[in-house]
């Protein structure tokens, strides 16, 4: 019995290690490719070990960009991605906190109407209303601008529902006590609700940052100028070039740079990430 148990444990770890390899292999291969000179890919030689061109490749693509693909320096795209991701995460949290507060703590006319209008956004991802949303954004003069990148993506029913749930668990006694002490709704919001929802806000922030950083279709549609290009959408034209001219080391360096920030967030805030993921799916 003990012997077969031991065998099972070894088998279990073997399966898990294969799983780990499957998950990490594409990232490893991309990293390796990004450290070799471009000629490596001409000879069709395959290596699974990093080369010696890492610093050259990364400093070239970060500082000068990829000329053949007429791509701007990558630090510009990284910065745009950061602005977009932060804008979306903060914007979504901000407007959702406010509307959840109104829906939970006030009895006002059109309360249910407001709730349903927010609910409906769940059913309309950008992919299904793509052309008219683009037209609206163009008519507002928001093409090639940060508000254009951010605003259409910050309405979120999930975030509003999450905060609604959080607020519903906060005991009424706290509200009564602060009202007796003469606190108005705004003071209550900042002094009681905000501190009590801090962890939920942080968990949601992690999820929304990744969501914002990884956007592809929307920035692709509304940015035609390089100075607003984000890194995730920018990778496409480099791939197109790489299919004819061997520039794979540059493309893979871009891919690695595009995945490091969200990966860093996930790894360094693993607990909050897992919490945010399981909470937003309720």
């Amino acid at each position: 019995m003990a012997g077969s148990n031991r065998l099972l444990t070894i088998l279990a770890h073997a399966i898990l290690i294969i799983g780990v390899i499957v998950v990490l292999f594409p990232i490893w291969v991309a990293f390796v490719a990004s450290t070799h000179p471009g000629e490596t890919f001409l000879s069709g030689e395959l290596s699974l070990w990093p080369g010696n061109q890492m610093i050259e490749n990364y400093s070239l693509i970060l500082g000068k960009g990829m000329k053949i693909a007429s791509a701007p320096p990558l630090w510009v795209m990284l910065l745009n991605s950061l602005i977009m991701a932060m804008g979306i995460a903060i914007g979504k949290i901000f407007i959702s906190l406010l509307s959840a507060f109104a829906i939970v703590y006030f009895n006002f006319r059109f309360r249910m109407t407001a709730f349903w209008m927010i609910f409906i956004t769940l059913m309309l991802p950008v992919e299904v209303r793509i052309l008219p949303t683009y037209e609206v954004t163009a008519n507002l003069g928001l093409l090639n601008s940060y508000p254009g990148l951010i605003l259409p993506l910050i309405a979120s029913a999930t975030a509003t529902f999450l905060f609604r749930q959080v607020f519903m668990t906060i005991p009424d006694e706290l509200t009564e006590a602060s009202r007796i002490d003469g606190a108005g709704p705004i003071k209550f919001f900042f002094d009681i609700l905000m501190p009590l929802s801090r962890t939920n806000i942080a968990a949601l922030f992690v999820i929304l940052f990744i969501y914002g950083w990884n956007q592809y279709l929307w920035p692709l549609l509304i940015t035609t100028e390089d100075r607003y290009a984000t890194i995730v959408m920018g990778i496409k034209r480099m791939v197109e070039v790489a299919d004819s001219i061997p520039q794979w080391h540059m493309v893979m360096a871009t891919a690695i740079l595009a995945l490091i920030p969200p990966l860093f967030v996930v790894i360094s805030m693993q607990k909050l990430f897992v919490r945010g993921l399981t909470e937003t799916e309720k």
């Binding site: 799983g19 780990v20 998950v23 990490l24 594409p26 990232i27 291969v29 991309a30 990744i210 950083w213 990884n214 592809y216 995730v232 959408m233 990778i235 496409k236 791939v239 493309v251 891919a255 595009a258 995945l259 969200p262 990966l263 967030v265 996930v266 790894i267 693993q270 990430f273 897992v274 993921l277």
Partner: peptide, 15 residues
């Protein structure tokens, strides 16, 4: 196992 979640679909495709 949570690593791929961080990778954008576009980047995953390119890898």
């Amino acid at each position: 196992m949570i690593w791929p979640y961080a990778v954008a679909p576009a980047v995953a495709g390119v890898l």
